[in-house]
Simulated assay, not measured.
Amino acid sequence: LVYEDNGACACLIDFGMAGRETVTPEQEKVLTAADLVCLTVAPPAASRHALDLVRPDATLAWVTKNDPVSFPPRLRDTIADRSRIIFCNKRELAWVDEALGGAIGDRTIVETNGASEITVHRAQGEVTIPVSPVAVTDTTGAGDTLAGGTLAAIAAGETDIIAAVHAGAAAARDLLRQRTA
C-alpha cells in the first residue's frame, strides 16, 4: 500500500496466482461453513467465487481498498450490498457510498481517518470513537488490524458493534506502539 499525504491509497499487489485465480476446495469448505467472513483484496474471480459461497445467514465484512482492479464496479457494488460491516478510510467512504447508492441500510460502516477519530456510520446515526495518536512514520496495516480486532471481538461473542470497534482500535494502537520501541 502506498499512501499519499491526503489519505489516498494505491494498492500495489501481485496475486502470484497465475492460472489459479479462484478459491481452493479447502477454502470452499471454510467459506460455506463460516458464520463470519471477511473479504479484502483478491483477484476478482476469487472474490466473486467466495461471495457465492457465503451463506445468506452468515455475516459478511468487507475491508475496502480503493482498487478498481480488485474491485471492478459491479463486484464492488455486489460486495457492498451484501456486506453487513464495511471498513474504509475517509477517502474510500465516497467510493463505498457510491456502491451503496447512498443508502446505508442495516449495515455498519467503520471509517478511519488516520490519527483522527474513527466514525461508525449506522442507520441510527454516527458514533465517533476517539483514538490516541501514536507517533510513528509507518502506519501500514493499522486499518486492517482495526478490522481484524473488531471482527475478532465479534467472533468471540461481542454483540455491541461500538464495543467491538473499541477492541479493534486497541489492537491497532498496540500494533503501532510496537513500532515505537
Rank of each mutant, 00 (worst) to 15 (best):
R55K: 14
P56H: 09
P56G: 14
P56C: 11
D57L: 12
D57E: 15
A58C: 06
A58F: 04
T59G: 05
T59H: 03
L60Y: 04
V63N: 15
V63W: 00
V63M: 06
D67S: 03
D67K: 01
D67P: 02
D67Q: 03
V69G: 10
V69T: 11
S70L: 05
S70V: 08
S70A: 14
S70Y: 02
F71S: 04
F71V: 06
F71P: 00
F71Y: 13
P72E: 12
P72K: 14
P72N: 13
P72D: 14
R74W: 06
T78M: 07
I79E: 04
I79Y: 06
D81G: 09
D81K: 14
S83T: 11
R84H: 13
R84Y: 02
I85P: 01
I85W: 01
I86C: 02
I86T: 08
F87W: 10
F87Y: 12
C88Y: 04
N89K: 00
N89Y: 01
K90V: 09
E92K: 04
E92L: 08
A94F: 01
A94Y: 00
E98A: 13
E98L: 04
A99H: 04
A99C: 04
A99D: 00
L100T: 00
L100I: 00
G101V: 02
G102S: 08
G102R: 02
G102M: 11
G102A: 11
I104W: 09
I104F: 07
I104N: 07
G105R: 12
T108Q: 07
I109N: 03
I109M: 06
V110Q: 05
V110M: 07
V110F: 05
E111Q: 15
E111A: 13
E111W: 02
T112S: 12
G114T: 04
A115Q: 13
S116M: 12
S116H: 14
E117D: 15
I118Q: 06
T119P: 05
V120K: 01
H121G: 05
H121D: 10
A123V: 09
Q124H: 14
Q124M: 10
G125S: 06
E126D: 15
E126G: 01
V127F: 10
V127L: 10
V127Y: 05
T128Y: 05
T128V: 13
T128F: 09
P130S: 08
P130W: 06
P130H: 05
P130K: 10
V131K: 09
S132K: 09
P133A: 03
V134L: 05
V134H: 00
A135R: 11
A135G: 03
V136S: 12
V136L: 02
V136W: 00
T140A: 13
G141R: 09
A142S: 11
G143H: 13
D144Y: 07
D144V: 03
D144P: 13
T145R: 10
T145V: 07
L146C: 07
L146E: 06
L146P: 12
G148N: 09
G149S: 06
G149K: 04
G149Q: 08
T150V: 03
L151W: 08
A152K: 08
A152I: 08
A153S: 13
I154L: 13
A156M: 07
G157P: 02
G157L: 08
T159I: 10
T159G: 14
T159V: 13
D160P: 12
I161T: 12
I161A: 10
I162D: 09
A163K: 15
A163R: 15
V165D: 08
H166Q: 15
H166D: 08
H166W: 03
A167C: 14
A167E: 15
G168H: 05
